[in-house]
């Protein structure tokens, strides 16, 4: 046990969670990462709908998608499902 771990007097009762999952980066699980061809991409957001990890992002300000590699686990669903074949999985 590390010294970072809290004692019973410091934590909330009943196992109420005190950290958001976003603090836990799953991005280092992957061996492949998605790379998008911006020319081919028509921003249909199919990749967004099929991502298990919410790692495809949508920025309404610039109206564009992106990949959050902090969470992407490299499953490759986005590449398979992209109707424009605009995503390629490449070794990190």
């Amino acid at each position: 046990m590390t010294s970072e771990q809290k004692g019973w007097k410091e934590i909330p009762i009943a196992g109420v969670c005190w950290r958001p999952a976003t603090d836990y980066l799953t991005g280092d699980w992957k061996t492949l990462k998605p790379v998008r061809d911006k020319e081919k991409c028509n921003k249909c957001l199919i990749c967004y709908m099929f991502c298990p990890d919410g790692a495809v992002t949508w920025d309404p300000e610039i109206e564009d998608i992106g990949f959050n590699l902090d969470y992407c686990k490299g499953c490759g669903i986005c590449a398979v499902e992209c109707p424009k074949k605009a995503i390629e999985m490449v070794h990190e």
Binding site: A21, L45, M49, D53, W58, P60, K73
Partner: peptide
């Protein structure tokens, strides 16, 4: 629209530990 959905906050936050490609 798909954009409506994309602009809705994620209820299931990233950082969950489902396997890669989890249905």
């Amino acid at each position: 629209t798909t954009k409506d959905l994309a602009e809705k906050p994620e209820i299931l936050m990233s950082g969950h530990r489902a396997c890669a490609g989890c249905g």
